[in-house]
Nucleic acid binder design. Structure first.
Lengths: 239, 239
DNA sequence: GTTTATTTGTTCGTATGTATT
DNA sequence: AAATACATACGAACAAATAAA
């Protein structure tokens, strides 16, 4: 499974080495010159590979010193990157299950969603409400609006089994996602769907997912059980 | 205020033009070749300038077509990076205030903190509890353990006025921070400090802040009013 | 304390590939 | 089919920060 581009091949190889423990946390990587020689490419190509890993918070560089493996947060729950529920579950070796509560062509949608999609708001969209289970426990309820053009007919039928992200990526590459996390109290409806007592807190996450060229793909409003889920991420200091 | 680097100068100039309306939303910019000629630099330099604006979600590129100005509603608030409370407030043009509740040499600390600092856990640490106000409203309560070596004596006295981050950065550069966000219910103690009724939800954020070379600097457990605060961030899709 | 070697940061020029129009 | 525009890649050089001699 080779990429067309050398620098991505190298980024993958470096990433593999990090996961395999060849390069350990906080360890210095070989210098850019050494890596260039080892892979038989120019230094700029190595730099692009490293840049790609830095943007994924896997490496850190320090001018005059070297490139280091970033200390990774322990993965317990939560998302260590942009993954769908199914993918995140698989990475933790857990069984996930999905129950579709609603799946219709959206004839209208909240203003917040319309605003998010901008000029694409008039296109046909699928409104999807799903209940997600981890090890047979209800974990989250998703309310998703996704542009129909990115989801084929056959995909829709498989949404109880397949990852929505992987279905979408058959049609368009997923680039990034703006997320907003807040804390709310569980409502009556959600109390039933998530098996949580009224009065307990929930994590509410709004997210708008884009292609690499900033085309909006889907708007997701998800409710997570606060007792089972936390969100992990890494912020970079900007200077 | 000139930068040392050409590509940042150019990025700033392009950004200025966008703000001034020279390049309008959704308009195509001159090609990389044309810009290179105009600024009298190589195409690579233009690409670096454009990359920098893309990482700030200001521009978008499409292969074979061109570079476009991204439509920018850009809602206020939220963290576009790793900032302390004081800095984030300043960026929003709001008044912040700080009340120190505790400031001692820590003789013991929670296991979670010890574990986070690893081999540095035996060094002297300062335990700091602060109440933070925005426009005179209590917003968050912080519980911080910071390695004493990174905070000078004089700094400690100024913690009601100065940003902790900027004090620390006189001694060591801040690199990045692993954060974990969860939702909890307000306790009696916090109810008073945050002026929130019992039974309401709070955002609880644990964060461990590192130097660029992955040395742990401080461990922060912060409680945020859910009605006043949300967390915004951007996740990149990994391939 | 100064010099030297190492390592990342920036920039140039050039060439070729790939997607769009 | 041709022109345009971004994507990738190479080689080379010098600057700037760091660490070691």
């Amino acid at each position: 499974m080779k990429n067309k581009t050398i620098f991505l091949d190298i980024a993958n190889e470096l990433h593999k080495r990090i996961n395999e423990g060849v390069y350990v946390t906080s360890q210095k990587l070989p210098s850019e010159y050494d890596l260039a020689e080892e892979f038989g490419v120019s230094r700029l190509t190595i730099r692009k590979a490293i840049d790609s890993l830095i943007s994924q918070n896997i490496l850190v560089k320090e001018k005059g010193k070297g490139t280091y493996v970033m200390k990774q947060p322990k993965i317990a729950s939560g998302l260590g990157g942009l993954y769908g529920f199914t993918e995140a579950a698989k990475r933790q070796g857990k069984r996930s299950k999905t129950k579709i509560i609603e799946c219709t062509i959206a004839d209208q949608m909240p203003d917040k969603v319309k605003q998010a999609f901008g000029k694409y708001a008039d296109e046909k969209m699928i409104h999807l409400v799903r209940q997600r289970f981890l090890e047979d426990e209800p974990m989250t309820v998703e309310d998703i609006y996704v542009l129909q053009r990115y989801v084929s007919e056959s995909s829709i039928e498989q949404l109880e089994e397949q990852s929505l992200f992987s279905e979408i990526e058959k049609n368009i590459e997923i680039g990034y996602s703006h997320q907003e996390v807040e804390a709310i109290l569980v409502t009556e409806d959600l109390s039933r769907l998530l098996d949580v007592e009224v009065g307990q807190p929930l994590l509410l996450v709004h997210s708008l997912t884009y292609s690499p060229s900033a085309k909006p793909i889907l708007y997701d409003t998800s409710f997570y059980r606060a007792d089972k889920y936390t969100f992990k991420h890494t912020l970079q200091r900007k200077h």
